[in-house]
């Protein structure tokens, strides 16, 4: 089982503490929520976990291995997939191509085969095409396979990002505001998929603003404010926590 564990993760930019001694656990088979008002340091934390930023101190353990100093591409290859808050797709490329790039870490054909267009490269290409189409089917987007990703509606672009993350076959998925810009029906559909993924044994870390979505879906929630954890527990407990209420009301 591949759990993600943060031990006293600390980050300061110059003198500004962006992440203050954060310890948390994202277990496999569960959906863990991370919430907090704007500027609470959620994105910084994600960047620290995924290897986009280096830690000032503390440790990130993934499946028991210390990945605190690993570069981002190796963190990804260790089995961590993610989506981005500000959708990052290849806008000109087709939806299919966007999803196919996710399989990269599992591609086996040799460089020479790819350069010379040998049969092994072509076979792999055809196989990945099929697998990508299967993913598209799961998300109900098979009809959009050839559309340029940038031409899709916002919610659909988020789905493409998710499919791409899933194509890497991760043990842990970090979803950064996955249902922003979606209606309730779409959000519900996605929620069902997330639950399936957790049931398959993947760890899911959900960063979300939509409190209703978090309450319905998460098994355990961490609340971040000003770079430090101010509460954790079941969604029900957390919502009732006075510190959390103050943090959210204080923002308004």
């Amino acid at each position: 089982m591949t759990d993600l564990v943060l031990e006293n993760v600390h980050k300061n930019f110059g003198g500004v503490v962006a992440s203050n001694d954060v310890s948390m656990r994202v277990p496999a088979g569960r959906i863990t929520g991370l919430i907090g008002p704007n500027g609470a340091g959620k994105t910084t934390l994600i960047n620290l976990i995924t290897g986009m930023l280096s830690l000032s101190s503390g440790k990130v353990l993934f499946g028991g291995h210390d990945i605190s100093a690993e570069p981002a591409d190796r963190v990804a290859r260790a089995g961590m997939g993610r989506t981005f808050q500000n959708i990052r797709l290849q806008k000109e490329a087709s939806v299919l191509a966007n999803v196919m790039i996710g399989f990269h870490r599992h591609e086996t054909c040799s460089l020479i085969a790819a350069i010379l267009g040998l049969p092994s490269s072509r076979r792999e290409d055809a196989l990945l095409r099929q697998k990508a189409m299967a993913l598209l089917g799961r998300f109900g987007m098979a009809g959009d396979a050839d559309s340029p990703a940038g031409s899709l509606a916002y919610g659909h672009q988020r789905k493409v990002e998710m499919m791409r993350a899933l194509a890497t076959d991760p043990d842990l998925i970090l979803l950064d505001e996955p249902v922003a810009g979606m209606n309730d029906v779409e959000a519900l559909q996605l929620g069902r998929i997330f639950r399936e993924l957790a049931d398959e044994g993947k760890a899911i870390l959900l960063i979300e603003h939509n409190m209703r979505f978090v309450q319905e879906l998460c098994d355990h929630v961490y609340v971040l404010d000003g770079g430090r954890l101010i509460a954790e527990g079941t969604p029900r407990d957390v919502v009732a926590d006075p510190a959390v209420i103050t943090a959210y009301l204080g923002e308004e």
Binding site: A72, K91, A113, T168
Partner: peptide, 20 residues
């Protein structure tokens, strides 16, 4: 091939490419 896909990903968005 996989190489062309990797080229495209790195060109379009390096941060995205490394996340994959």
């Amino acid at each position: 091939s996989r190489l062309g896909r990797a080229f495209d990903a790195v060109r379009e968005d390096e941060g995205m490419a490394v996340s994959l």
